[in-house]
Design a protein around this nucleic acid. Structure first.
Lengths: 204, 204
DNA sequence: CGTTAATAAATGCCTGTTCATTTATTAAAC
DNA sequence: GTTTAATAAATGAACAGGCATTTATTAACG
């Protein structure tokens, strides 16, 4: 006994993400999101309560997406290091253009002032840290890494390197993000590879 | 034959930087900056032409600050690696709190959409890259680094690591930025240190 | 007195939000 | 099976607030 919703919430959140990538946090107005989603601004307020509610839903979606990506990568890769590379590549190269990457990063930074949005950003960060740490530990157990490797420290390094590669790439825009990420990841991991000469641990 | 200016431009720009660190790009209004600088909003427009003019002047100031810091570090340090550490520490820890760091980073990212602001951000980036590269080359020449080190690649790595350490720290806020930066810098540089007395990259 | 800086008020635009209204769909009533 | 009432969703106009910017005015020097 009700009128069904014209568009799904997910459609609106995807539209909001597109607008964010295109015009950044300053341009993420209700009117812009509504226009992108094919609805009217008032609809967004009725759905999400307020603009902040929309942003919270967007952050929740990003948490779900991060979890889903982690699960997917784990399922489709056997080698721990290969899965790790895939995870980091996927998380960053979804933001294909430097503009989109910079805009999403600006959104992330601006959100850190809001406790609830910060909480969501931290959830993504910690989920990735856990996944990276487990993959590294798995790699160490399988002999893909040296046994002496400090997995906790290396996890932090990997996360910092990933973020830093994206940020510097958004700045200077030299080459592709995939190249940059691969280079920096290699530089961070190669000192911890087992001292087997002429034995490439990656088959891909 | 004119009325002298009440406050110097530099005072206003420093006030703008403070406001930026406190409330981020969204809160950087002319009224807020004017209040911080002790003038009236209209004054800012008359001085800088428009808000964009103020932002441009702020970006120019950051370019000058970066150059000055590079010159100062070079002057006061003899060891190339020590100078490098000092340079990176100073550039990041000027943004003392996670909030300030995140806000300035958000400002940087948002500016990348504007060609003229992007140009200034690139100037800072390239000036730092040049300084880092020269310090690394100097260190390699002095035997502080292995001769086989790819200075160009390591320069990129150092910049990425610096940015990444700051960003991840602004996110999780564990420890101090100085600690994080030192850890990541050590991890990035230690594989390139010369294989001297019992100073293996893996210390047990 | 002439010139320039600082001021204060006002203008117009864009923002998020609210509200009354209309539309669409389903459950119940006959 | 048709009609009717109920309910939730979508709409569009209106609202108030904050913003950058403009303008006219006042104050402070040489």
């Amino acid at each position: 006994m009700a009128r069904p919703r014209g568009v799904d919430d997910a459609v609106i959140l995807r539209a909001a993400a597109r607008v964010m990538g295109r015009v950044g946090p300053a341009g993420l107005t209700l009117a812009a999101v509504a226009g992108e989603a094919g609805v009217v601004p008032g609809t967004l307020v009725q759905r999400f309560g307020s603009k902040r509610g929309l942003l919270l839903a967007l952050a929740d979606q990003s948490v779900r997406d991060a979890d889903e990506l982690i699960r997917r990568v784990r399922r489709t890769h056997d080698g721990a290091l290969a899965a790790l590379a895939e995870l980091l590549t996927e998380t960053t190269t979804q933001l294909a253009t430097p503009e989109a990457f910079a805009n999403h990063l600006a959104f992330l930074c601006a959100d850190l002032a809001d406790p609830q949005l910060h909480e969501r950003a931290l959830a993504v960060h910690h989920a990735q840290a856990r996944a990276i740490g487990e993959l590294l530990a798995q790699a160490a157990g399988a002999g893909e890494l040296r046994a002496t490797t400090d997995v906790t420290a290396l996890t932090r390094t990997v996360q910092a390197v990933t973020a830093g590669a994206g940020l510097t790439w958004a700045l200077d825009r030299e080459g592709t993000l995939g190249q940059r990420l691969r280079q920096e990841l290699d530089a961070a991991l190669s000192p911890h590879l087992p001292p087997h000469p002429a034995d490439d641990p990656e088959e891909s």
